[in-house]
């Protein structure tokens, strides 16, 4: 760990000895800090797993598929929040990705160069807005809008059609899975857009120029050169957004309707793991099965985020193709 170059001058020799002590100490501190971070994450996972263990033992794998959350009977199944977490996150991705792609395309290929920085910054600022603000904005602005203008006509028009109708049934609360997904989409939009823009910029100019030289339109260059070149990283960026959508708490809690029933309707209420933990953790008694079930859900959320992040990292790693 000490520096390898021998100090030629005599006066420096003694300094070198004391400084090698300094080097060892400094390196040890740096290493300790690294190990601390490892232990910290380990402790988080272990504390969630130990806390959730009674639930895993009591219900086994059935916990993942049981939609019953009944505090009176002391029966807990994680299916509703797990389903809510996955569905809201996936719907959010479905809504955000086309927009993010458009923004990234605009920022890398279409916008006049003086315009790129301010627009890019503005989009990035969207990512900086705290999630509680999204929740509040969603509750006071989007929810009434949905309840008044979007849901009633859709429910009236579609709910009597078989199969499809099931997706739009129920009273127009304005809250629910679809509204939560919409807010999540706005929140993850800047993340995905920024990642896409950054990876689009890694495409060597010479590739694009040769395609333009052949007479390709901008869209053809995008479709045939940029997207194939960056495909893997783009998916990585989308996964990064997915990871964020999965764990979002405050914005979702405000608008999802906080209900532990499985609902087929997109306008129906639901819960996500993060929102059920935020709501029900404070009242769950130490040692109770309910507390254990919430911690088990926390553990499951961590595992899901962990997997999504691991995939995203592998795909975004420089040189991954």
């Amino acid at each position: 760990m000490s520096h390898s170059l021998a100090s030629p001058a005599k006066p420096l020799a003694s300094a070198s000895r004391t400084s090698s002590v300094g080097d060892v100490v400094f390196a040890a501190i740096a290493k300790a800090a690294g190990v601390f971070v490892l232990l910290l994450l380990g402790a988080i996972i272990v504390s969630l797993f130990i806390g959730g263990w009674p639930t895993f033992r009591a219900f086994g794998m059935g916990f993942l598929f049981n939609a019953d959350w009944d505090p009176v009977q002391n029966v807990f199944g994680g299916a509703v929040p797990i389903y809510g977490t996955l569905v809201t996150a996936v719907l959010a991705i479905v809504m955000a990705v086309p927009l993010a792609f458009g923004i990234a395309f605009y920022l890398t290929e279409l916008a006049p160069s003086w315009f790129r920085r301010p627009v890019g910054t503005a989009i990035e600022l969207l990512a900086a807005v705290p999630s509680i603000i999204y929740g509040m904005w969603g509750f006071f602005m989007i929810v009434p809008f949905m309840a008044e203008w979007v849901q009633p006509p859709l429910i009236d028009a579609l709910s009597d059609i078989p199969v499809v109708g099931a997706l739009f049934k129920g009273p127009p609360f304005g809250t629910g899975i679809f509204t939560a997904s919409l807010i999540l989409a706005v929140m993850i939009l800047p993340f995905i857009a920024a990642t896409m823009r950054d990876v689009f910029q890694t495409v060597p100019a010479v590739y694009k120029e040769s395609a333009y030289g052949l007479g390709c339109t901008t869209w053809e260059v995008m479709r045939s050169i940029v997207i194939p070149y960056t495909r893997v990283s783009v998916v990585g960026g989308i996964m990064l957004g997915l990871g964020r959508a999965l764990g979002e708490t405050m914005a979702v809690t405000f608008v999802i309707g906080n209900t532990n029933r499985l609902s087929t309707s997109l306008f129906g209420p639901g819960n996500t793991i993060a929102s059920i933990v935020a709501l029900e953790f404070p009242e769950s008694q130490a040692g109770s099965l309910k507390l254990s079930s919430l911690l088990a859900l926390g553990f499951i959320l961590f595992v899901i985020s962990f997997i999504v992040l691991a995939i995203s990292r592998t795909l975004l790693r420089p040189g991954a193709k």
Partner: peptide, 9 residues
Amino acid sequence: SVKWPAGNG
């Protein structure tokens, strides 16, 4: 807290 048959929380 009970298992509500209908409604929003």
